[in-house]
Amino acid sequence: MMEWNVDTNEKEMGMATAVSNNKLLEVTDLGVTFKTDEGLVRAVDGISFTAHKGKTLGIVGESGSGKSVTAQSIMRLLPNSAMIDEDSSIAFYRDSGPIEITSLDNRSQKMRELRGGDIAMIFQEPMSSFSPVYTIGNQIMEAILQHRNVSKQEAREIAIDMLDKVGIANPAVRVDQYPFELSGGMRQRAMIAVALSTRPSLLIADEPTTALDVTIQAQILELMRGLKDEFDMSIIFITHDLGVIAQVAQEIVVMYLGKAMERGTAKDVLGNPQHPYTVSLLGAIPKLGTLGGRLTPVGGDIPSPLQRPSGCPFHTRCKQKIEGVCDVDPPGITRVSDTHTVYCYLYE
């Protein structure tokens, strides 16, 4: 359906990882556990990654892989039943200095400044991300007034300007309309306008195109790519769709059951996949020009998070499982290259 359209920035990327002052967000050993009636659920199990300034980081995984929980941890939007591990670290590098997000109070002034100010977020369901009883303009201006020192009139002008920037026609009219008067694609554009209206340095997009149909999906991706450069921001793009990731991301984390199975630049992961899980995910995507070939789905189902498999979490579905090894102890992280790591016994 779509060609690999890997951004050509990966060379810079490789150098960027070496230079620490290019880091914007650094997640180290993030672990999140939910308390439920049935017991503890380990949703994220010690993952690490870095988002760099001006780049897009893609987090890819099936549902239940913990990718959304990771995003919510960064925004500190987790429900009360969730606990972040004591030794987890989420460092956000502001110009004025780094901030450790995990040590901030959920409701503190500082956290609220970060949330929506430095880091903005858009969600999967453009239909329900807006409250139905307030106008689009009201909800954009709310964010602007919260984070920027402007008057109401100025906020309104910024809102109209933002709606224009995200490609909504007649922004001066649309600003006074209610969400139900906008189509799904327009609402997602409006959501992006809300997110960018405060000029954040990081945008977290949690499956922003999943609920949209394919042509609109492509438009939104194009829009986000353009806006990223215009606003000089970074994006963490979360999706289950490797095809989408290939279009937008320079660096990729592949998640499975709360673990990062493989990490690297887009070229590393898509062009030279190492982990059997990544390989099988890529096998499940239709490719242009190979019409005759069959798609190979990833066999089996994701195990219940209540009964996490021992050892490597993927061993129950892995075709290259080593008996007595993979199902006993978790593997270590192996470096494939300077930018490329994999979590698998095959490479140890």
């Binding site: 925004m75 929506g116 903005a120 329900s128 991300s129 409250s131 139905p132 919260q146 984070h147």
Partner: peptide, 15 residues
């Protein structure tokens, strides 16, 4: 628990 509330919280609106 509506997404629109989470979305507003993500905008940094005081609780």
């Amino acid at each position: 628990n509506k997404l629109s509330v989470t979305a507003a919280r993500a905008r940094g609106i005081p609780e």
